[in-house]
């Protein structure tokens, strides 16, 4: 299936304007992993409130989110990403259930690796206080030292280890 994507520079420019709008209107950049954190905090808070209250991580985050972790900026923003991504899929006729993988691995292996990769990303984003959107991209826009270090570490590591994982993709 051949599908047409926007010119990457044009898309980058529009993404930059979106990020700029976020900074100008709300004073903060874009993000994604923060919504994962909110979801985890909300789930643990509901399922095991005593455990959440006893843990420094959960209680501090609950306090920061005014005891209502799902009523957070990033949660709404990520809901928007779902809607926006879906609309784009409709417009460009790309709505299909499918698993994308390299030619040399099976579907189930791909799904397993996606799960592991997601877990690593989730873990890493907590250490770095943000992911590719919140730390690297938004950090670059406001020229934050930490954000730019994280960006370099993500891409640097990716290139450094790409060879060992080539069977997953090529």
């Amino acid at each position: 299936m051949k599908t047409h994507y926007m010119n990457p520079y044009a898309a980058g420019f529009l993404l930059g304007l979106t990020l700029l709008a976020a900074i100008v209107i709300t004073g903060r950049g874009l993000g994604a992993s923060g919504a994962l954190k909110s979801s985890v905090v909300a789930t643990v808070h509901t399922v095991a409130p005593q455990h959440a209250a006893a843990s420094k991580f959960y209680s501090e985050n609950l306090k920061a989110l005014h005891d209502n972790p799902l009523k957070a900026w990033l949660v709404f923003e990520v809901l928007g990403v779902v809607i926006g991504g879906f609309l784009s899929g409709v417009v460009s006729d790309r709505l299909t259930f499918q698993t994308e993988r390299g030619p040399r691995i099976s579907n189930s292996a791909r799904l397993g690796f996606a799960l592991i990769g997601g877990a690593l990303f989730g873990l890493g984003s907590q250490f770095a206080r943000g992911c590719t959107s919140g730390a690297a991209l938004s950090g670059m826009a406001v020229l934050s030292t930490g954000g730019i270090i994280t960006m370099a570490a993500i891409f640097g590591t990716g290139y450094a280890v790409a060879y060992f994982f080539r069977k997953l993709w090529i």
Binding site: A32, S33, A35, L36, E100, F113, A114, L115, I116, G117, G118, A119, L120, F121, G122, L123, G124, S125, Q126, F127, A128, R129, C131, T132, S133, A135, I149, T150, M151, A152, A153, I154, F155, G156, T157, G158, A160, V161, A162, F165, L168, W169
Partner: peptide
């Protein structure tokens, strides 16, 4: 965090 995410990117093929 960046190093861990770098592994996550290459293994998982996405970012959050």
């Amino acid at each position: 965090g960046g190093v861990i995410m770098g592994f996550g990117f290459i293994i998982g093929g996405y970012c959050p």
